[in-house]
Amino acid sequence: MSTKDKATVGEDQHGIESEDTETVGKPLLAAEKSRMTCRNVFVYYGEKMAIDNISLDIGKNEVLSMIGPSGCGKSTFLRCLNRMNDTIDICRVDGDIKLDNQDIYDQKLDVVPLRARVGMVFQKPNPFPKSIYDNIAYGPRIHGMVDSKTDTDEVVETSLKRAGLWEEVKDRLDAPGTGLSGGQQQRLCIARAIAVNPEVILMDEPCSALDPIATAKIEELIDELREEFTIAIVTHSMQQAARVSQRTAYFHMGKLIEVGKTNKIFTMPSHQLTEDYITGRFG
């Protein structure tokens, strides 16, 4: 299901016909409720179109999950939200993405403060090859948010506590972050992200490299974090989407097919493609 031709030629019922390209559900929110707004976003990798006209809002203090078959563009879309795609030379983004009514692709806007406001957690835990303490302190330090050692200590402690890792590592803050287990590493990365106190946290399949117990801990953590942060999470697991998110967006072949309340999407999907996907007919 990775190329366009396959789908349009091979499986008629899954091909998107022209009248279906309109996103089903409620992609847009009321202005006062939304944190990030995306309008008519296109993304190209060289000649290839990866995201095809997506409009979607992410609300305040909500967890929005993005699901869909691999190669559907959900990760690409996520990476647009804090301009991580900038690091890829051939990638081009068109359209309007706003954070609190500020265009993040504005020429004048700097990515550095943007990324301080929109943090990200990656598929594979990627702690820096430094101590646990320095991993957390890195963000606050570069952004000049802490002035003294006590400040830093406080930030490290609160971040680790919020990520639920404090009890496990408080005695070995000087140990290298790479020495932790996979789940701990991922929570360390989450702690690292929230240490900067961002408004939005993007998570790109944060549990795909983890075992079920570690996954459960992370999911629990996401639920807690919702109180303070807006979270957009890309996931492969529909169960996970169902457990952690309030709204779910279904992507297919670079298009946004359906957005809605999570329980509605999983119980009564409106679009044929969504239904096929969640019932496991493909994906």
């Binding site: 700097d110 550095v112 403060p113 301080a116 406001r117 952004h143 000049g144 948010m145 900067v196 106190n197 408004e199």
Partner: peptide, 12 residues
């Protein structure tokens, strides 16, 4: 967050 943003801007 306001103070954070300010700090970030200041150091920028």
């Amino acid at each position: 967050r306001k103070s954070v943003a300010a700090a970030v801007e200041k150091g920028l």
